[in-house]
Nucleic acid binder design. Structure first.
Lengths: 377, 377
DNA sequence: GTACAATGAGCAAACGTTTACTCATGTTGA
DNA sequence: TCAACATGAGTAAACGTTTGCTCATTGTAC
């Protein structure tokens, strides 16, 4: 005959303790146990504490699957990404994951790989799992899903990707970030600021160009020459530098704002190779704060950090709000980054290193100090 | 009065169609519908087809949560990683995800961030979700979890991380990969092959050193000088090159096997800067096939690809076997990579680019062709 | 002393599947 | 002709929670 009215638990060792065990141990019903642990319902503090104590003693942890089946929430979200390389997605994913984990929400990682069929299959799988929300993450702010997303009945947030008009999206504020970078150069006395960037058809490029122009205009300066477009590569920075600093030119730039850190790297290498001192003769600011590049340049690179980790966290927090049913204004939000100061714009950055003693083509002086800046004003 | 004996489905639009709907539509019981769709049990082909048709028509997709509750499987695995940067984890994760996705298994991404508490919390969360298995991924083959993992009652696989004696783990075969890289140099006629690598206390370093020695011994060659250890950085490659190629030396190497692509990058830059032609005077092979570096060197870098994506796939397939109850021999498996040929060892690689016309310190000839190789045999 | 509200707790249904059993209906073999 | 059996399909329990409802008890106001 059984000791209790509840059935014996004869489960094998690997089977976890359920709320029934807690209830039996405490001598209350499953209902009461559930309510005690979820801090809902009315009951004697004494009962609540007894249930809690039993749960702790038994090492009870609620089964998320069962909870997900009965409740409306699965406490999981899906992250669909086409960025297999992970350069942009991973910080976003890490931020998302950490901000969700604190609230008991887990993240499914789905590698879409730019293949529409695969993405569809992943989204189906996420629906089958009844995820509470979906994050679509990309590597380009002007590229989104390869197809229109139907109404899934769950919140969707686009992260670092383009999103439909009425959706909710978060991207780095490229224009503002560029503005910041250029203003940083202006504040350090630069007035002939060139811009070397990536492919022209990237929205990121055109926004950064606009930020460059805007910051210059704000300082009553004109753009130094035309924008040098390239393919985001180190080589294109190298080539652009040789052109910008060609001996035959009437005028040299005193600073270059680069569209990414690789370009900056190539540009600094080229400048150095022809005797132009960075930052003495030429200040350089990069974009991305990709440390593997930014710290490897001589001197280390002052650059823009897009704060993708924080972007991921914001996406996570917003998703939690949406899941909680709070209203969130639709639309695209552009999040500011920050300047990471190192040495390539002069001054002392965070990564102080012994100065190299390269001879400057311009006599080692800081050209910026010697030359009158003409303004457009 | 209801049209059917089954209750009306008055669910809102965002509520998905259940197996009851399929059963009702077909006029069979839920049991039969379930069996028809799962291809089990006995029934008329006609019945089975009718159920299938109804399911397709209604767009029925089984609810993974319900399925997970009743079955022993949740069709999900957890991926715990401490590699926030993602350089090593992301290919592994992508491979894992893709090989699992084909079998209907999703992957939870947990960013552990080297914080034991966080990792524990993540593992708890995964247990609460009743995952079918756990993958512990790392960025160093000689570092694992910050604590001993208790018996979870589910399969655990370590990927690119150290694992306890009786566990199952997969790592790149550093020794073999190094061996391949050096043999590649030997096959191209090099005989004074130096090795510049990262930190001495990394197991990856010592294994690669061993592979270097082994391949040399196999070719009856002696190591060229001592191993140059560094911190995996570009700068350390640069410095090492200046030392190895110093004018005062009695003998110069005719090849360098580098512990990663950044080192190779620095080394090639240094060599080029002092007039040593790569690959004319010096062949260089890297490690990692990190394209952003391997393709940016002049000439593009021949290097070792550790095939981490494939490693992830193998981990996935093994995990599926384990979940299916198949026996897998415990222990650490070392997986081979492959050489990616570019231009830094001579010959034509995949990434042909116009040759630069740098003048060689050694007269532009290929030193390797001119010099007798002394052997240890 | 009665009516009524507040309190503490339990019953049972529900979530959407899967699956061990049961059962009616042919079908076969002696 | 009847037992034994194969077949096709259904019943109901189970998975581990949550939650709407009910109910006994106690306290309170009239």
């Amino acid at each position: 005959m059984p000791d209790d009215d509840l059935p014996e638990n004869t489960a094998p060792a690997n089977c976890r303790v359920t709320i029934r065990d807690v209830a039996r141990q405490t001598g209350v019903s499953v209902t009461t146990a559930s309510r005690a642990l979820n801090e809902i319902g009315r009951m004697t503090p004494e009962t609540r504490n007894r249930v809690r104590a039993a749960a702790a003693e038994l090492g009870y942890r609620p089964n998320s699957i069962a909870r997900g089946l009965v409740g409306k929430r699965s406490f999981a979200v899906g992250l669909i990404t086409n960025d297999t390389y992970g350069r942009f997605t991973l910080p976003v994913a890490a931020g998302l994951s950490s901000s969700m984990a604190d609230r008991g929400v887990s993240v499914f990682l789905c590698a879409g790989e730019d293949d529409a069929e695969r993405v569809k299959a992943n989204i189906d799988a996420m629906q089958d799992r009844r995820v509470d929300g979906l994050v679509i993450a990309g590597k380009r702010i002007d590229r989104g899903l390869p197809f229109e997303l139907p109404d899934l009945g769950i919140p969707v947030i686009y992260a670092n990707a383009s999103c439909p008009p009425d959706a909710i999206g978060f991207v780095p504020d490229d224009q503002l970030n560029a503005h910041m970078a250029v203003s940083h150069l202006v504040a350090r006395g630069c007035c002939r600021i060139a811009h070397v960037t990536g492919k022209k058809d990237f929205e990121a490029s055109s926004l950064r160009v606009r930020g460059w122009e805007e910051a210059l205009a704000e300082a009553n300066l004109s753009p130094f020459g035309d924008v040098c477009y390239g393919n985001w590569s180190e080589e294109c920075g190298y080539t652009a530098a040789l052109e910008l600093l060609a001996p035959g030119r009437a005028e040299w730039p005193d600073a270059v704002f680069c569209g990414n850190d690789q370009i900056a790297r190539g540009l600094i290498d080229a400048a150095t190779s022809i005797g132009v001192d960075v930052p003495g003769d030429l200040a350089v600011v990069g974009f991305d704060n990709w440390e593997i590049f930014a710290k490897a340049t001589r001197p280390p690179l002052t650059t823009v950090d897009m704060e993708l980790l924080e972007l991921g966290r914001v996406v996570g927090r917003t998703m939690l709000d949406l899941i909680d049913g709070k209203d969130v204004e639709p639309g695209l939000r552009r999040l500011p980054g920050r300047i990471v100061e190192r040495r390539s714009c002069g001054g002392g950055g965070a990564d102080l290193e012994p100065r190299t003693n390269e001879t400057s083509r311009h006599g080692g002086g800081n050209q910026r100090e010697d030359t009158k800046c003409h303004t457009t004003g």
